[in-house]
């Protein structure tokens, strides 16, 4: 491969990535606002993750099965003590 061809490939590789990234990013913006508006997902409630972060605060979206497992474990620990 001569250098000119490599440079051309590089140019196209660069430009296409910029295009894809930009389209991807703006598709993501669209996705975010659409999901929020149509009520599929409320992103803004996730902001509370920082505010209600005590270990016994309500979960925003819990991993329920795992959570029960852990609670069981902690109960067991308590019994052990």
């Amino acid at each position: 491969m001569d250098m000119e061809l490599i440079r051309t490939l590089q140019g196209w590789g660069y430009v296409s990535m910029i295009f894809i990234l930009t389209i991807g990013l703006y598709a993501y913006i669209y996705h975010l606002y659409k999901s929020q508006k149509s009520g599929i997902k409320d992103y803004e409630k996730y902001a509370n993750l920082a505010l209600n972060d005590e270990i016994d605060d309500c979960l925003v979206e819990g991993l329920y099965s795992q959570d029960e497992k852990k609670i069981n474990r902690s109960v067991k620990n308590e019994l052990a003590e």
Binding site: L32, Y33, N48, A50, L51
Partner: peptide, 19 residues
């Protein structure tokens, strides 16, 4: 947010500015 007690102005904006 934690110190001021204010949730992030826009969580969506935070996600897309990350990307």
């Amino acid at each position: 947010p934690k110190e001021s007690g204010q949730p992030v102005f826009s969580y969506k904006l935070s996600l897309l500015s990350f990307w």
